[in-house]
Amino acid sequence: MATTQHYMWAAGHFILLISALRYLLATVLFRGPSPWWYKTAFTGALASYAIVCQKSLGTPQFNYAWFTRSMADENVQYLLLALFWWTSKPIALALVPYAIFSLFHALTFSRTTLMPQLLSQGPPATAGGPPTPHPVQKKLQNWVKANYDTAMKAVAYTELLIMLRVLLGAVTFQNSLLSPVFYAHFLRARWYQSKFTQAAIVQVNLRIEGYVRAPGASPVAAQVYDRFKAVISRWAGSIIAPQGAAAGARRQ
């Protein structure tokens, strides 16, 4: 039985998804999207992620152990990032990862909680067992399973594009100078925690390597890129492409 808190969590994701789609559609169609939809989308994100963080971490405690544990939690990282975006000048691309996450959460909530109340369930497969889900629920479950990895790869690449966007935005004064700094720390955490982010970075690195080391390319380009990687590696505390991640990326 879904609790009130669970419904509030789902409501946050539905609000995020609908508002993000409205804002992104207006952006794509050059219709001058209202910042209200942007704020509303991240308000939904803040509500949903706050509920998840409270459930996983409990009441905030003012001690180092709790702080360390919370900062290592992916949901806390996305909660803090959502708060940062909520207080910053709108960047449409920032909505995309959250919208993808919310799409899968909304579909799963619909399948497991809403559809059993709206669609007729089949007889139990075994005596005393739960009712058999409606065929629509099964199709939805299969779609989510089949497309989850692809969606997470899309999130990883989009998050790298956001890094490029905020870097260019800082140079052209379209966003604050703090944005690339804050977002770089977020990506550093994703590097350690997400195999999809690791694979995306490995693939981007290989693609750039192909350009800067191509026959006829200026050796200066390779030298500059090598120095850039060295700086990033020292800052991140690891080499740019661990053997495991690189091998996994090449197999994909």
Rank of each mutant, 00 (worst) to 15 (best):
T132K: 00
Q223A: 15
P35S: 05
P135Y: 01
R22K: 14
A189E: 13
T59F: 03
F62C: 06
S194D: 13
P97T: 02
F173R: 15
P215I: 04
L25I: 11
T27K: 13
G244K: 15
Y225G: 11
H105D: 01
T40I: 04
G32Y: 08
W9F: 00
A214G: 05
P219R: 08
F182R: 12
Q54N: 11
S88Q: 09
T68D: 12
Q223V: 12
T113Q: 14
T158M: 00
L24V: 01
V224R: 15
S233P: 13
L81P: 01
S120Q: 15
Q77H: 01
A200F: 12
P215K: 00
L114E: 03
A151H: 07
L95W: 02
C53T: 03
P215A: 02
V181T: 10
A50F: 13
A94Y: 13
Q137F: 06
T43Q: 07
H134G: 07
R190D: 03
L81E: 13
T108A: 06
G237L: 00
K39N: 08
V220N: 05
N63G: 07
R188M: 11
A217T: 03
S233A: 15
H13I: 10
F30W: 14
L187I: 10
Q243Y: 13
S102V: 01
V144D: 11
R190V: 01
W85S: 07
A249H: 09
P130V: 09
Q243A: 11
L114R: 05
R22E: 10
H6I: 14
L25C: 12
Y49R: 11
T3M: 07
W235G: 14
H134D: 05
S48F: 00
R213C: 00
Y148C: 09
L24C: 07
T4L: 13
L21R: 05
A151C: 05
I208H: 08
Y38N: 07
L177C: 02
A214S: 03
Q141D: 07
L161S: 01
L114Y: 00
A241V: 12
R165D: 03
S56L: 14
V52P: 09
G129V: 11
A189H: 15
D73W: 07
R31C: 08
L93F: 05
Q223P: 13
A199V: 12
A151G: 03
L17N: 08
P135L: 10
G216T: 01
D149M: 10
L25A: 12
A146W: 06
Y38Q: 09
V204G: 02
T87L: 07
A189K: 11
A20W: 01
T150R: 14
A246Y: 12
S70D: 02
M152Q: 10
Q193M: 10
S120W: 15
V76Y: 09
A146Q: 05
K55M: 12
S179Q: 14
T43S: 10
I208E: 04
A94E: 04
G216E: 02
T172G: 02
A11R: 02
Y38G: 09
H185F: 15
W86D: 06
H185K: 13
W191L: 15
Q203P: 12
V204Q: 08
K145N: 12
A45P: 06
R31Q: 13
G237V: 03
Y38I: 07
L25V: 08
A20V: 04
G248W: 15
A170T: 04
T172S: 02
V212Q: 08
